[in-house]
Design a protein around this nucleic acid. Sequence first.
DNA 1: AAAGAGACCAACCGCATTACA
DNA 2: ATGTAATGCGGTTGGTCTCTT
Length: 211
Amino acid sequence: MEQVAAGWWRKGPWTPQEDQLLFQYISQNGEGRWSSVSKCTGLKRSGKSCRLRWVNYLRPGLKKGQLTPQEEGIIIELHALWGNKWSTIARYLPGRTDNEIKNYWRTHFKSRNTSTAKQQKRKIIRQQQNDHIHTNSVSESSHEKKNEDQLGSIIDQFLPAESASSSDFVPLDCYLWGGLWNLEAENDHLPNIPPDYYHPFEGDAVDYFLL
DNA sequence: AAAGAGACCAACCGCATTACA
DNA sequence: ATGTAATGCGGTTGGTCTCTT
């Protein structure tokens, strides 16, 4: 059983050293057996904390930066379908975590009705800056186009009848977007998408941290 | 320049579910 | 069949940053 003595586990933000220990452990032993991480690594973190850190931050294949319009559309649609089933929704957004989607929903859509245009624009500028830092996989021009789109109603934009032109689509990794619109209305399930869409990390842990 | 407000996100907590002895 | 440990999930909180006033 996990040690749960009050004050024994370290809490708060993870340090790079802790991240590296956890990453090396999982690189060598694989995911799972979270409760034994502290024993094997010396980390003073609970299994839950280790799992959360791995899933939300360290796991290879995670995307950083702003969600694409396609991803937003998927979130909107799947949330309409399933509600707050964040982990389920996340399975259809490769590289995104349930936590990320949950946060995104809360900040972008839940309070959307109360956001002013000014606030929206501000948010977008910030997202642009953030994106610039985290990823260079999408061209600047497509960012600009995307952000223009975001100034309008995202939800309206993604109504199936008036979906964006194909030229706006970022060539996404795999299963995004189009597949969802092909769902039959009466279907309450989604196409079979392998849940293991994360590419296993095959390199050296140290190399990963030097990226 | 400083204070306030809002956005963003990492991380924690508690409950539910699953696995296993 | 049952109790316990481990894991997963959703809700929430708190810190930091940026922009506005």
